[in-house]
Nucleic acid binder design. Sequence first.
DNA 1: ATTTACATGTGGAACGTTCCAAATTGTTAA
DNA 2: TTAACAATTTGGAACGTTCCACATGTAAAT
Lengths: 337, 337
Amino acid sequence: MTISKNNKNITVFDVARQAGVSKSTVSLVLTESDKVSERSREKVLKAIDELGYVYNRDAAALRSRRSNLVGIVINDLTNPYSAQLAVGLERHIRAMDYMSVLVNSGEDFATQKQLVQKLKEYRLAALVICPAPGTDAAWVNQQIDAGIPVIHIMRDVAGARAPVVIPDNIRGTRLATQHLLNRGFKHIAFIGGSESISDFHERLCGFNQAVDGAGLNKQHITRIQAQTNRHGGRQAVIQALEADPLLQAVVCFNDVIAYGAIEQLRALGRVPGQDIAVVGFDDLEDSCRMSPALSTVHIDADEIGRAVCKLLGNKKDAVASEGRILVDVEFIPRSSG
Amino acid sequence: MTISKNNKNITVFDVARQAGVSKSTVSLVLTESDKVSERSREKVLKAIDELGYVYNRDAAALRSRRSNLVGIVINDLTNPYSAQLAVGLERHIRAMDYMSVLVNSGEDFATQKQLVQKLKEYRLAALVICPAPGTDAAWVNQQIDAGIPVIHIMRDVAGARAPVVIPDNIRGTRLATQHLLNRGFKHIAFIGGSESISDFHERLCGFNQAVDGAGLNKQHITRIQAQTNRHGGRQAVIQALEADPLLQAVVCFNDVIAYGAIEQLRALGRVPGQDIAVVGFDDLEDSCRMSPALSTVHIDADEIGRAVCKLLGNKKDAVASEGRILVDVEFIPRSSG
DNA sequence: ATTTACATGTGGAACGTTCCAAATTGTTAA
DNA sequence: TTAACAATTTGGAACGTTCCACATGTAAAT
C-alpha cells in the first residue's frame, strides 16, 4: 500500500549532481563555510530544497569528530524550578545551533553515572550537569579527562575541575533575611534543603551572615532541614513552630518549600504574610500570582542559559577550563513577607 | 599542561587485537548477537574494560541506518503535568535502551516544526509528540511519509496517520462531574482549557454527558475557557461566579486550573471544598498533599510511558501503524470536592 | 571415511559526511 | 600580456561501525 521505502537515501552526491557542483562544495555550503561563492551557495540551496535533502548528522559527527549534541542532566525535572531552568537552557543551546539531550537523574548519583556513561557514546559537545547529591569530584574529573567538557550548574562539586554557573545564593538569602530583620522580626527560622548539596550550605550561609550581624538571641533562630518539596515545607514549619512557638518569620530554602510552609501555616490557622512572614528562593512563575504573592529571591533562569552558552562558545578545544560564574539575584518583596 | 588529546580513538580494531579476535566478532558482541560464543564474548568484554573503549553511536547509526534516539516533543515543560509525563516517558524509553532527546515546543506550532526539522537530521527511531495547538494532519502525515514513526500523546490530531496514546478524558470528567451531581449540586461550571486542543473537547464532552443526563436547569450550567495556568484558573472562577452567583461546584480542565480556582475562591472569602467544591484533572504530585487535598482524575503517567514503549517495540519497520490507545483514568475524591 | 548441517568467525565493502592537498578559475599588478 | 596571488572548487581518503558473503571448525548422520 505505502510506497516501498526506497533504500537509497538522498545524499550530498545527489544534491551535487542536481546543482552541478561537487560534493565538496555541497559540504562547504552545509557547514556554512565562507569559502564558497554566493552563486554556488544558491545553486546548492535550491537543489537541497528541490530534492528535500536532509542532512545526516551521524555521518557528519563521525567524520568531523565533533557532535552538536549537548547533554543536560537535570537533578529533578518534577521540581518546577528545574523544569524552568531546563527550558531556558534548552532554548539557548538550540539558539547556538546545538541540540540538547535532556535527561533526569532524579537526584540519584548512580542513575546520573549510568546516564553519563550512555551519553558519552554520542561524543557530546558538552555536558551540562546539575549534580545529584553525592557526586564526587574524582568521578567528574574522570569524565573531563575522558575528553568531555563538563559544565556544572546550580551546584558546586568541591575539587572538580569544571566551570560552574551558579546563582549568588549567599547574597540571595542574606538579602531576604535582612529584609525580614529590617521589618523588625526577632524570631526567625531557616527551613528546608538538605546537607548533601552545596546550595543548601550557601543559602544557609547567607542566612547566618544576616542574623549573626543583627545581635539576636540565639534561641530565637531556628534551622530545620527538610525534603525539597511541598510536603517537606509543611513538616519543617511544624518543627520550626515547635522549636520556637513565637516564630515571626521564615526564610525558605526555595519557593516550593515556601508553598508548603504557607499551606501548613494556613492549616494551623495562622495567616501567612500577616501572622508569620514567609520568603522563598527561585521566584517561580506562580510565585507572583499566588495569594499572598510570595516574597522571594529572583534568579534569572535565562541568564544561566546565557552563561552556559558563553562557556560552550569558549569550548573550541580547550578542555577543563575552570571558573565560577555567579549569576546575579534580586530580592523581590511581595505580600507574603 | 594537559596531556595533548591523543588524536587516535580506541576502536573496535583495538579491542579486537587486545582480545585476539576480529573486529567483526567485537561488533557482534556490541550488538548483543547470539551468534557469538561465550568464550569470545568474555574475551571481548574484558578487552573493552581494560582499554576503556567507548562505543561510537554515530558510526553505528550511520552504518546500520538505525538510530536509538527517540525524540520527545513536549508542549509545555513548565506545566507540571507535562514535566511529570516527560520524566515518565524518558525513564521508560531509557529502559528500552533508547535515548530520548527532549525538546519543548512551548505550545507553538512554528517552533514545533523547526524542532522536528532539526530532529530529523538524527534519523530518529521514533518521534513522540504532544502536538502544539494548530498542528495539522497534513504536516504530521508528511513526517510519517518521510519515514519517521510518529506517536502522538495526550492530544489527537484528526486525520493524522499516527497512533495516539491518550487518557480517557471523556470518562474522566464524566466521573468527576457525576461525583458532584451525586453530592447534590445543581449549579455547576466547567472551567479552563482552550478550544484549539483535542483534550479540551473531550473533557468538556465528558462534562456535558454527565450534566445532560441529570436534567438540570441549563441556566445553572456554566462553561468558561481560560489559559492553562493558575492565573487562567483565577480569572475563570471570577467569570463563572459572575455568570452564576449561586455556583456550587467547579469541574476544572486540569489541576493547575484548579489550583488557581482555589486560590481565587479563597481570595474572595469562599472556603474551597466547603462553600464551593472544586475538582481537577491530572492528579499532580502536589494535589494529594495540599489543603484542601484536591479531588481529581488520576492519569498514570507511567502507563502512558509503557504504552508508548509498546508502540516503539512494534515499530520494527512498519511505519504508520494507526490506532488509539486509551489509558485508564480514575476519579479520586478528596476534601476539595 | 564422507557428507551434511550447524554454529562461529572473518575480511572487505559500505554508510554519508568532512578533511586535505592539489587543481582550477578569477583578479590584480607589473 | 603575463606573473603572482587570492578565491574557489574538487576528487580521493578517512571517520568507526555494521552488513554481507564466505571460510572455518565441530558434531551428527550417512
